[in-house]
Simulated scan of single mutants.
Amino acid sequence: MPLDPTLERLVNMVYRSGFGKLHQYTPEQIMEILRLPHLRIAPVAASDFQIRDDLSVRCYTPAQIDDTTSLPAVIFLSATGYIINHMASCNEYCSLLANKLGMKILYISHRLAPLCQFPEFLYECLDAIKWIHLEANTLGIDANKIAIWGESSGGNIAASLTHLLRDEGLDIVRHQTLIYPMVDLSHDYPSKKDFAHGYLLDITFIDYLEEMVFSAGKYRQDGLASPLVNPNFNQLPTATIITAECDPLRDEGEAYGQKLQAHQTVVKAKRFPGMIHGFLRFYNKLPLANEAFDFACDQLKAAFIPTHEANNTEIHL
């Protein structure tokens, strides 16, 4: 299927302005260019918690709910590319998530590359999750109903965290939502060749991030940098995986879902035709962005329904 016409106009416009040269810019310049689109969503109440220097969590509470009310929680890892602090610009998106799910959203703000490289930021996020679980009463969350939601680079971190938590015997995360995740630095895929340039995530930029964040390929085969090649896929949380047809990361995201399924993990996966990397950020501008967002939220909510209730609950996909 061809690229969605609305996205095609957007892509043509941004590439005319030099978007294809992102790999030649500094992180500061990239931050200016990769501004998130406004969603025109009223922000919900949010509180900041400092875990330690350079590691914090922002907790969003759904509208019209007292922040002391105990709710299920979703740990959110944004598509930072490991180099961009999106905490402030994610307020609208996290507010949308909080209201849509009726859950608290916990945005982890960890240190960024190039000052903080793999695997340091991964273990910072692990420490944040342990803190969140320990401080569940303070945060007003149900410690037995915690999920993780990661997009792009955040999907890489989210997937790797489920492996780390499993390895430490910590049954904290009940469900993982991975949105066009980056899960394999070690292999080429057809989608990486078919959509190598001109779809808002160029291979040149992926290579740039690998150079800056993962020591120029030193960790390609590491099962935490490339969770798809992790040797242990047992006892991982149920998963929702969303991929975009015109995305270089499409094939590895879908392969990750297939590998989870092969190890008896329940997975709901869906590819969205004519879409590109990052398309969920065009909520209320693209019908398929709304559909994908709703699909992910529905699956996450269903994951928290007790088994005996789920058997009697019809879920429309």
Rank of each mutant, 00 (worst) to 15 (best):
L122G: 12
S153A: 15
Y82I: 09
K259N: 12
Q235F: 09
L224G: 09
E245C: 09
T204C: 07
L200S: 00
I148D: 02
A42S: 03
R9G: 05
L134R: 08
T26F: 06
C59T: 04
G140I: 02
K100G: 01
N137A: 14
R250K: 15
A216W: 05
A46M: 13
Y60F: 15
V213A: 02
K285S: 15
L7N: 01
H263Q: 08
F279Q: 01
K100D: 01
L249E: 06
D142N: 15
H133G: 12
Y107R: 02
E252D: 14
L286V: 12
L55F: 03
G169F: 07
V183N: 01
R9D: 10
S160L: 03
C297A: 12
K21G: 06
L134A: 14
V213H: 00
T307V: 03
M87A: 13
A143V: 01
I33R: 04
G198R: 06
Q176M: 13
P5R: 07
T240E: 04
S152L: 05
E254P: 03
E291F: 11
Y93N: 07
Q264P: 03
G150M: 05
A216M: 06
H187N: 05
H308K: 06
Y60Q: 07
P2H: 12
R271A: 06
R281D: 07
F272K: 00
K21M: 11
K145R: 14
E28C: 07
F195S: 00
M212D: 08
E254F: 05
K100C: 01
P2S: 15
C94A: 13
V229F: 07
T162E: 06
E314L: 15
V11R: 04
A303W: 05
Y199N: 08
N137R: 13
R271D: 07
K285P: 05
K104G: 11
F233I: 09
Q221A: 10
N284M: 15
F121D: 02
H133W: 11
I83F: 10
E92S: 04
G257F: 06
F19N: 09
G155P: 06
D142K: 03
S78E: 04
A136G: 11
N312A: 13
L10T: 15
D66A: 14
T68Q: 10
N144E: 15
A296W: 00
Y189I: 11
I179T: 06
L55E: 03
A113C: 12
L170R: 12
A136I: 08
D67N: 15
E211D: 14
L236M: 14
E211P: 07
I179A: 03
A98G: 03
T80G: 06
